[in-house]
Nucleic acid binder design. Structure first.
Lengths: 301, 301
DNA sequence: GCGTATCTTCCAGAAAATGGAAACGTATTA
DNA sequence: TAATACGTTTCCATTTTCTGGAAGATACGC
């Protein structure tokens, strides 16, 4: 490699830093130490003969040259990622559509959202990945995912151009087996005082809203379980181990699949689901379909 | 860097090998040893999990996966090169147009070919590079040049998609100072038997044609100098040190600039100039202008 | 001011790239 | 058929580059 050739490893680190907005976060995402990134970044700047970042307080800000570099790097690594995928998936006829879904999103909702992209005219090969919200956003940034469906919108980070599209906002009720319903339906919500409850984990935005709701109603129910995965939560609910929160509008599905009925509404508590994508010149055609499907479910409520 | 990330250095070497058609040539161009390239290529294939090349006799042939990889690599390194240039040239308003010109091309011809791109509507910043034919083709392959003007067309190498456009074909005469003209113009070409001659170097295609012409006429003139640079050759000619070959149609220019007049035509000897470009989706707009300018000079002859 | 968060510099150990030597396989030539 | 030329691959010691611990510099918030 000639000395004046671009060092693509350095460029990759630069790209990560630019998108994450800080060396520290980029180092985390790349699984490297900050010194390493800082050093390589310095080498890249020295080689290019100009600064890509300017110190901005205790963090960094892209220079004009940096913006140019970022725009090019974005393209380069997008193509690189496509190459990696093209070679790893062999010669499938169906185009790939990779979606990350956080645990908290009801499987049925995700299913209805995504089922249509499998059918013509798109007929993609759907690749579904579950995982931590932050991890999924990382994969999105690396162009390894086309879309993330989550129960929260994306934090706005500098240069990481994410677009969060609200798919659906639903009111939440507590559901329970018929037995629990018998015990708790009367005098709701005061009947909850001694009721067993299955709740989302604290990392889940819905959990915060439910905790606040319990607070206002001065209720101290017996929290018997916490889950990140909404399906697992409902499976425990099906066994009658506790009341669990779920979208009021999914009453029928929950009755059919989990044998549970609404015990009472959590007034003012709602859950939102978002489709999060990177802003690209050419969006994956399946994204529009998914967004439309989200809108339909919203209208159906 | 994650272990399953693309190694862009390896990809660069693969790209060079694919375009050059052999590891040996790629190693030469990159200034590395064959073992190095071979090793890295092997690593890339192992990491991707499939062969990019298949042995074909004692050389290599792209596999289907290799063709996919090449197409992507081509884009990646083209963008990388644009980035390098965008950053090195700062914020010029004029778009860059980089042309390689081999020594053998008369400067005046090159000038007439290229002058129009400096003027509106294109108004590019012209970057002229002289050098060995092979070296210039290398720069072209690396996308560091947009066009090469040379006295020969490009050899057809596998995967190195070059397009040679014939600009001009001109008949050659021998020119000389008025003094030499006096000595040699009578009884041409037999008068050449004892005449001092300034000729292009043996690497030049025109030289082959001239040698053949001398052979057929059974002439053994006194070759006093060999030059790769046609301008330097003519400068010696101007000093009266020998007769020199030049396009018959440039008579007036040569009289004005080098004080030399035609002594006699080399029947059947001609020189061609070519504009050589890589085949891209979007050609540099200046290339069309240059090709048109070449056509005009041809018409004028 | 003091603790904390962030980037940078220095340096030694770890990892990767590199090329010399030689083996191997295939085409060309005698 | 053998000899030769050409091109790739493998082995391995050397060189270069990358990496992260430690410590220093600078900015922000309380």
């Amino acid at each position: 490699m000639r000395p004046d050739d671009l060092n693509y490893r350095h460029l990759l680190y630069f790209w990560a830093v630019a998108k994450e907005g800080s060396i520290t976060r980029a180092a985390e995402r790349l699984g490297l130490s900050v010194q390493t990134i800082s050093t390589q970044l310095g080498q890249l700047e020295r080689q290019l003969g100009q600064a890509l970042f300017a110190p901005q307080g205790r963090s960094l800000k892209l220079t004009e040259a940096g913006r140019t570099a970022l725009a090019h790097a974005e393209q380069i690594f997008q193509i690189g990622e496509r190459l990696r995928q093209a070679l790893s998936e062999g010669t499938h006829t169906r185009p790939r559509f990779a979606v990350g879904v956080t645990d908290a999103v009801p499987k049925l909702f995700a299913f209805r959202l995504l089922e249509s992209v499998l059918r013509p005219p798109l007929a993609v090969r759907l690749e579904c990945i579950e995982g931590e919200f932050e991890h999924l956003l990382g994969e999105l940034a690396l162009n390894r995912l086309d879309l993330v469906v989550a129960d929260r919108s994306a934090p706005q980070r500098a240069n990481l151009k994410l677009h969060s599209h609200l798919l659906c906002n639903v009111g939440i009720s507590l559901f329970g087996s018929t037995e629990l319903h018998k015990r708790c339906a009367g005098n709701f919500p005061h009947s909850l005082a001694a009721a067993p409850l299955l709740l989302p984990a604290r990392s889940n935005p819905l959990r915060g809203a439910i905790d606040a709701w319990l607070e206002t109603h001065e209720l101290r129910p017996d929290i018997v379980g916490e889950f990140t995965d909404s399906a697992l939560l409902k499976t425990f609910g099906r066994a009658g181990l506790g009341l669990f929160p779920a979208p009021a509008s999914m009453r029928e599905d929950i009755a059919a699949q989990f044998g549970a009925v609404p015990v009472g509404p959590l007034q003012g508590v709602s859950e939102s689901w978002y489709a999060i994508a990177t802003q690209r010149r050419v969006q994956h055609p399946a994204i529009a379909i998914v967004q439309a499907a989200g809108g339909k479910q919203l209208a159906g409520d």
